[in-house]
């Protein structure tokens, strides 16, 4: 019974996300659209907690509520108090938090599947679908988190100059191939050390991806990382067969990607040049 009500709540929430996002594309209805999406989010969160079936320890409920209360107070006050000019960096920070959340989910789920003390016989056999979701969520979430934090510091003025290592595009390509290599390794031997190594190298890639990009291009980068987090959330949806996470995640993933392209066009900057910018011109530029 509860399960069916939850499914219907998820459908309503998904519809509210879509309508809300559509209304945000028009100056007259934008504010109402944002509130509609927020209402959808409250439905999805409240339903997930209240309609859960099965034994749950009291401490779990206490921790969930505590986390939500602390998060709401911090999120609300910072968003309300921050100066208007500092809003873009705040958006970047919140985006990073979502990415970190997706990465943490993957880590916990990995530990549920392959606990520290005993690796189940047969290793990762029969878990390949789950592993794909865990690895993708972890990598994309961590890249989005690390990238967003760097973007935050760039807009903040802490890292005001683009940092360009010589041949940084090749270095990044190398790091990305290490990410791919460790991911493939996980399918053969799923050990906790491997997953934490993957986490570390994915975080490094996120840092290295955003570090060379100049402050003026940050809005485009944040938009791109925003769609990354959307995709990471969608992989969480795959993992739990949870449709509201899938709709929300994919919606932001595709809308965010298109928005990135549109923003680049509006700024008259080709997207490839933003991301792989000073290809071969290490010393010149800004």
């Amino acid at each position: 019974m509860n399960q069916h009500i939850l499914s219907i709540l998820y459908i309503i929430a998904s519809v509210l996300f879509i309508i809300g996002l559509k209304m945000m594309g028009n100056a007259k209805t934008a504010r109402k659209g944002n509130l509609l999406s927020a209402a959808g989010m409250i439905l999805a969160i409240a339903g997930t907690i209240l309609l859960h079936e099965g034994e749950v320890g009291n401490i779990v409920y206490v921790l969930i509520l505590l986390a939500i209360i602390i998060g709401t107070i911090i999120g609300w006050t910072t968003a309300r108090r921050v100066q208007m000019t500092k809003i873009p960096e705040l958006v970047s920070m919140f985006n990073g938090m979502g990415g970190a959340c997706a990465a943490l989910i993957s880590l916990i789920e990995f530990q549920h599947l392959f606990p520290f003390d005993h690796v189940p016989p047969g290793g990762s056999q029969g878990h390949s679908g789950t592993l794909i979701c865990i690895i993708s969520g972890l990598v994309i979430g961590s890249v989005s988190f690390a990238g967003s934090i760097i973007a935050f510091f760039k807009l903040n003025g802490v890292l005001d100059k683009p940092v360009r290592l010589p041949r940084y595009n090749y270095i990044n390509l190398l790091i990305l191939s290490v990410v791919a290599g460790i991911s493939i390794l996980l399918f053969y031997s799923a050990s906790p050390i491997t997953i934490y190594a993957l986490l570390a190298i994915a975080l490094l890639y996120g840092v290295m991806l955003v570090l060379p990009i100049g402050g003026a291009d940050m809005p485009v980068v944040i938009s791109l990382l925003n769609s990354f987090t959307g995709v990471a959330a969608a992989f969480g949806g795959f993992l739990y067969d949870n449709h509201v996470m899938l709709t929300g995640g994919i919606l932001v993933g595709s809308a965010g990607t298109l928005l990135t392209v549109v923003m680049c066009k509006a700024m008259n900057r080709p997207i490839m040049q933003v991301i792989f910018g000073a290809f071969g011109t290490t010393a010149s530029g800004s």
């Binding site: 996002l21 945000m24 999805a44 958006v91 959340c101 959330a233 969480g236």
Partner: peptide
């Protein structure tokens, strides 16, 4: 509307919290 839309989409992918819960 690009920036508010990006920010709104950013809030929507917060649905990842459902997975965390």
């Amino acid at each position: 509307l690009h920036t508010p839309l990006m920010s709104g989409a950013n809030a929507i992918h917060g649905v990842v919290i459902v997975g965390a819960i």
